[in-house]
Amino acid sequence: MQPRPIALKILDVVSIILLAVSAYLALVFAPTELVMGDVQRVFYFHIGTAWVGLLGFVLAAIAGIAYLATKNMMWDRFEVAAVEVSTVFFFITIALGSIWARPIWGTWWTWDPRLTTAAITELIYVAYFMLRQGIEEPEKRARFGAVYTLLGGLSAPITFMSIRLAQSRTIHPVVIGVQNAEAKGDFGMTPDMRVAFFFALFAFTVVFIDFMWHRLRLANMQEKAEQLKLKASM
């Protein structure tokens, strides 16, 4: 086994430090929100994980198109890595949102457009893994996976639009951009909150890159192990 490259080792350490600083900023440095209290601090990680989750799904769809165009297995490995890491982050987003919603909305879950879309999106990528699991040949698995990420990447925004348009009322807060008048649990960010917020975005982006790197390395090693097995059996 090759040792971890030095750059990856550095990135590992940097990620841990950034995550720790981000946790400090979110849990201690940022002021307590007046109405919601401490539970609002969930927000920083909620947005951080949601951002990298969606980023990974978009990257996966792009990698899918790149695979179909070039037939280079490298893109397939990239796509799997992106979907795998993002599915976990996106699940954390939903879980954190639930923890926040319990005291603020009075319920763990509600069929709000954003929540419903998030659940369906998560299910699309769970289905993606089930699809891949059912196919033996690596080349076919890559093709089908690419097609499915493409369909998923197109369908998820349309799902959001269709729920949003069908049921124009939403209670999910919009903190960045146009504020939602009907949102329950909305707030304006103070400068200190902004620092914690943007730092969390940055920290999770670095963590995401770190995880992607590890996952890609793992995939490359798997590939090598397969080839060695094949050689040994011949």
Binding site: I124, A127, M130, L131, L151, S155, T159, M161, S162
Partner: peptide
């Protein structure tokens, strides 16, 4: 596998 693959992707059709 088909319903598992199809339902989440076809959700907008069913909704609309």
């Amino acid at each position: 596998l088909l319903p598992i693959l199809l339902f989440p992707v076809a959700m907008p059709v069913l909704l609309a």
